[in-house]
Nucleic acid binder design. Structure first.
Lengths: 212, 212
DNA sequence: GTCTATATTTGGATAGAC
DNA sequence: GTCTATCCAAATATAGAC
């Protein structure tokens, strides 16, 4: 019933796909609560009642969109990691993953940005139905950061799970303040990476500088 | 009409205050969409219609709560900064501000956590009415980070505004994954500070280490 | 100040014609 | 597959009694 991602659903079922596309765009820009089935139907060129031929409920539409969004980010990040040479350092890998995640979010994909936007707005039942897919993606990051930690590339004071939570949330939050029209994604990707890998401070912290 | 913060409203008007307290608690735990005026009234020990003697609309209640939440965080952070010795470094100041922000969020204050939780859920009109207060708080951070940058304490490649957006969002996002019952706020405050100030990587980045 | 009762609107969902 | 028509529930908001 509920598709895991778009690749498994091919191109058949084109009106179902059109409905999802329209709904994703509306959810992305108006949020979950402000998007009604009538809105989605109008955007799709049909009437509200007709949606029920393709979907059993609004929840089913939303869950599909949430799942597709995460699957696309997951695929993009996994491909980027796999494309690296075997000699790549953990730092290189983390950098590549950060870049890929940001690309997936910002390169005009309604599904990925709708996911981040509405995840905190949907009813708990919907979130629960979507959680497994989301956890699978976080597992990819968890493995990467844990491996880096065990290899001694992260400070011993760092908890990989904490870094994971902190990093993923702030990457997602970039949707709220970064406008790709005003600069390339590469720019914030580089800043994110530098910040996470080396921090924002220029010098050794032992050198104390007075305020103002 | 709409109060800026709680201090200006004193203790008078105790039922208005009780309504706000109950609403903040409900918004914090159930979110904006799932909290009705009936819920708020029931929690406050009255009927839905009676709320309109104290408030003109649901929006007015929500805006008050959003404003109070930010004002409390702002006060906490400003106090923490002011309490530092004049010899404090920028790094010290940033650390203190991070700690204060996290304390304000996690120490059982329904207003501050409701703010973070529902800000992305409220109608645009409500967000707009609240924006000025929020911007005033961000200005405090902006001044701090810009000063640190101009003093040469941040890497030249760092954009203070970008660090600001990134840092504040991830501090707020900690509400979604950190449970103060399982560990002191100090712990994540230290990790956040270390991450932002020095990064997560243990060694100089020039030393390349192979993966797996 | 708070109540009861109700107006009004909106949105998810269903039934049956075509 | 899509339409029209409609049901039903929930929520904001108002009016007037007490």
């Amino acid at each position: 019933m509920t598709e895991i991602d778009d690749t498994s659903a091919r191109e058949e079922n084109s009106s179902r796909r059109r409905i999802l596309d329209c709904a994703a765009r509306l959810f992305r820009h108006k949020g979950y609560g402000a998007t009604s089935l009538r809105d989605i139907a109008a955007e799709s060129g049909m009437k509200a009642g007709s949606l029920y031929y393709h979907f059993a409920s609004k929840d089913e539409i939303v869950i599909d969109i949430l799942n597709i969004g995460v699957a696309r980010v997951h695929d993009t990040v996994r491909s980027a990691i796999d494309a690296l040479a075997k000699t790549a350092t953990y730092a290189d890998t983390i950098r590549a993953a950060i870049h890929a995640h940001l690309r997936a979010l910002h390169e005009a994909d309604d599904y990925t940005s709708a996911n981040v936007r509405i995840f905190g707005q949907v009813p708990e039942t919907v979130r629960d139905a979507h959680l497994a897919i989301r956890r699978a993606y976080e597992e990819t990051w968890s493995k990467l950061l844990t491996a880096a930690f065990e290899a001694g590339e992260l400070r011993p004071t760092m908890d990989p799970q904490l870094v994971l939570a902190l990093l993923l949330r702030s990457l997602n939050a970039s949707l709220e303040w970064f406008d790709p029209k005003k600069g390339p994604v590469e720019r914030i990707a580089a800043t994110f990476s530098e910040l996470v890998l080396r921090g924002a401070v220029d010098e050794a912290p032992a050198v104390a500088k007075r305020r103002a």
